[in-house]
């Protein structure tokens, strides 16, 4: 696959014209579904993710409940026509099962689950279009959906990937960079209390590159965090008299 690798950095610019520290264009909307207790859509470039939250609600089956906290359940999945190229089988893949766990554990540190013992909070992340960064867009959207559902959180969780392509550390990998780059490192954080809730690395970085990449990721996360706040506030703008 890597045999046909295109040149990813040309005269300092990336394949989609961005500089290494640029995010793709981002759109966020909160409260897009009626039945769910909370919901949000996040678009970053051509990647588009819908997140919905139900709860806290009774735990079914009962034996899964925990006496001192709410359990968080999360399912990440891609719609069958969301990927480039061939149709994706709707059966859950190993990747989707891992990402469901990774996303849940990115969000757990933020949720004040002790307020709702013996209940469940369900998070559903549906990828409508996948062109790189679906897990990070999923975390960003799920955190908005949780806030929209009124579930107490210590902070919003924002996420973005960084990586290394043609030797350059870049922010917010698109599909092509993800496929042919040397490294891909998704990061999630609670910016206002300065805690990192998810980090993965797929690829090879020197310790110096890692430091630079993490700094760039946190910088991107801050920008996404501000957009999240704007999107939430937008739902509650003053009504014109």
């Amino acid at each position: 696959m890597k045999a046909n690798k295109p040149q990813l950095i040309i005269e300092g610019k990336r394949v989609d014209g961005r500089t290494p520290s640029d995010l793709r264009p981002i759109k966020m909307e909160v409260g897009v579904l009626r039945n769910a207790d909370g919901s949000a859509i996040v678009e970053i470039g051509n990647t588009k993710v819908l997140a919905a939250v139900y709860g806290p609600r009774e735990v079914v089956p009962r034996h899964e409940e925990q006496v001192d906290r709410a359990i968080i359940r999360c399912r990440y999945r891609m719609l069958s026509f969301s990927t480039m190229g061939e149709r994706k089988s709707p059966a859950p893949s190993r990747r989707e099962i891992e990402l469901s766990k990774v996303i849940r554990e990115a969000l757990e540190p933020a949720i004040v689950s002790s307020q709702f013992p013996r209940t469940a909070i369900d998070i559903f992340v549906e990828v409508l279009n996948a062109e790189g960064g679906t897990r990070t867009a999923g975390i960003t959207a799920a955190s908005l959906a949780l806030a929209d559902a009124g579930i107490p959180m210590l902070d919003l969780v924002a996420a973005v990937a960084v990586g290394k392509v043609d030797g350059v550390i870049v922010l917010d990998l698109n599909e092509v960079e993800d496929m042919y780059g040397e490294a891909d490192m998704p990061v999630a954080a609670m910016p206002s209390i300065g805690k990192i809730t998810m980090i993965q690395l797929n690829g090879v970085l020197t310790p110096e590159e890692f430091k630079k990449a993490l700094k760039l990721a946190l910088d991107g996360i801050n920008r996404i965090y501000n957009l999240q706040k704007e999107a939430l506030k937008k739902k509650y703008v003053e009504i014109e008299e």
Partner: peptide
Amino acid sequence: YIPAASPTFEPGP
């Protein structure tokens, strides 16, 4: 029927 669509829909095939 994705589980986001209704509190009564469950994940699964």
